[in-house]
């Protein structure tokens, strides 16, 4: 099953490698990867991912991505941007903040 993830990522050294590594390590194959040009120190990554087995849950992956310090927001096309901003805020509260 193909899932699309949209990630707002800070332009920090290693940020992309960390993101890709996490997605692979947590049991997903990356089908396509698109990175936007950076604007104001941030770029948008669009990934199409497929779980390696049926037990993998996308919402868990989304929260694991949301834990990364360089990730500003993560959402799927089904989640409106406004909701994503809220969810991201929620994750930052649960996880350590980054100034």
């Amino acid at each position: 099953m193909l899932n699309t993830l949209i990630i707002e990522l800070a332009e920090a050294e290693g940020a992309l490698m960390r993101l890709i590594g996490l997605v692979e390590r947590r049991g997903y194959m990356i089908g396509t990867l698109d990175k936007s040009e950076a604007r104001e120190g941030q770029s948008t990554i669009t990934l199409q991912v497929t779980p390696r087995d049926a037990a993998r849950q996308l919402d868990v992956l989304i929260r694991q991505i949301g834990r990364l310090m360089d990730v500003r927001a993560v959402f799927t096309p089904e989640i409106a941007a406004a909701e994503a901003a809220h969810a991201s805020y929620h994750w930052r509260q649960a996880c350590p903040p980054r100034n």
Partner: peptide, 9 residues
């Protein structure tokens, strides 16, 4: 849990 990513994992 303090870490929301653990919930439902």
């Amino acid at each position: 849990d303090a870490d929301i990513a653990e919930i439902g994992k």
